[in-house]
Each structure stands twice: as structure tokens, then as C-alpha cells.
Amino acid sequence: MVKSTKPVPDSMTPAPFRVTARRQDLADTFTIELEAADSPRGFAFRPGQFNMLYHFGVGEVPISISGDAGAGKLIHTIRDVGAVTHGLSTLKKGDMVGVRGPFGSAWPVDAAEGSDVVIVAGGIGLAPLRPAIQHVLDNRDRYGRFVILYGARSPKDVLYLPELQSWRGRLDTYVDVTVDHAESGWAGNVGVVTKLIERANFDATHAVAMLCGPEIMMRFTVAELTARGMDRGDIHVSMERNMKCAVGHCGHCQFGPKFVCKDGPVFPYGEIEALLKARGV
């Protein structure tokens, strides 16, 4: 992963990328691997940033970068929820897609060095956090305890299961997974993701938390983390709003006085707490 936030030269014109691989992760979620069609140059991004993916003839959507496959290949994990994401779900190896980006703020992986790191993800929210997880694992000796907590709807909705298992297999990482409902064959936890926080071992006064998932989950998670003694400034959340330009011009992603595309999507919780609690923002 190269450290630069600069978008590709013309941030309003999608660059053509070719699909080099496609995997169906869950019934409604898939991962595509992309490579720049003209010059397969390195794609510089920071964990937490997103791209605008343009499905020709259908439209454009913001999608977080969920990893790099090396050699300048980009990875996006996408949930098929509507017109554009459904269009993207039909892409096959060799098909083309337009890419603008990377845009937005990043997870504070550098600032978190020397601290415990607590990742709390819900549903597809694990995708934008995966580059941050990878970064911590690749530089494991720079961080204190590393805790990954993940909640999904049911066992068949658990994203990146093989990776969760391999992270859990490491002696230096604590991984706990829960689902909202399950049949009795499931050997894991059942209950909300906030419950996992009680059992995880980290020093709340020397930790940085990174949260991504439904806003309601993030609100409850923040309540649990602050009850444990964490400072709001050490909790970072990734926000989603509809987007169009992605560069702070159109106002589509406005969230109170902030633009999610430019000031976010990753915010220190203290900065947006009031907005999250306000109705209709």
C-alpha cells in the first residue's frame, strides 16, 4: 500500500480499469479485483479511502477500497443493493469499469502506533476496515494489543470468514465474531457486537478504536467504549452519505457543516457526535 492521498490526475474523469478477478463472498456481496487498463501503475491509497466506481451506462457509486492485491491491483467488496451496485455485480473477468479516486480521509493507522487498536465492524463495514487491519498486521510490532470485533446478521452473512479465521489463528490478535441470530448448529456467539467489547482485553485509556457499520451500531458501540473509559477523540467512525462529485463541490454528501467525501468518510467521533444524534441530518 503506497502512502499518498492524491486522487488520479483528473479527479472528475473516470479512468478505465479492467476486472481481473471476481469472487462471490455472500449471497448479496461480491469482491472485484481491478487493474488500470492503460498503464498498470501502482494505485496509491490510504486505508479507509474510497473510489467512485462507474458502471458504464448505469451510474457511479462510492465504494471503499477494501485492499490491494499488490502490483497496483485494487480490491473492492460490494453489496448488491440497487441499480449501480447490481450492475457492478454482473461484471466478469475482462470487463471494464471506470474508477475515480482515491478520495477522502483515512483511518488513523499512523497516529495509533504505540497504542492498543480496537476494530469494531458490522456487516459490510468490515470491507473498509480490512486495509487498516492489514496495515496493523503487517506492522504488528508498532502496536499494542490488537482486537477485532465483528458482528453480522447471521452465520451466512459473515464476510471474509477465511481471513477472520486466519487472523484469529495468530497469537498476537484477538478476534471475536457474533451474529444477531443463528440456528443451533452455529458454534459461535449470538448477540449484538457491543457485547463483545466487555470481554475483549485492551487498555481503554491507551487505545484507538476504528468503527464501521450501520450508524445505529456505531452509536451503541461508542457508548460501550466510552463507558469503558475511552476518550471520544480516540474513536474513529466511517460515515456513508449519497455522493456525486466526491470532491466537495456538489453538496450531495453534506452532513451538517461537513462534507463526507472531503472531510470524511473517516471522522473522529467527537467531531460528528452532535450530528449523529440530530434527527434528519
Binding site: 443493493v81 458490522g122 456487516g123 458482528g151 453480522a152 446478521r153 452473512d157 444477531d180 441470530h181 448477540g191 449484538v192 457491543t194 457485547k195 457499520g213 450501520p214 445505529i216 451500531m217 451503541f220
Partner: peptide, 14 residues
């Protein structure tokens, strides 16, 4: 409160 959150189907479609 956890049971209510669980019932809200928060990982479903917003």
C-alpha cells in the same frame, strides 16, 4: 436494550 438492537435488523437495508 441488546435484544432491541438485535431485533432492529441493523445490518439489513437502511
Amino acid at each position: 436494550s441488546s435484544a432491541r438492537l438485535q431485533l432492529s435488523d441493523m445490518y439489513g437495508r437502511p
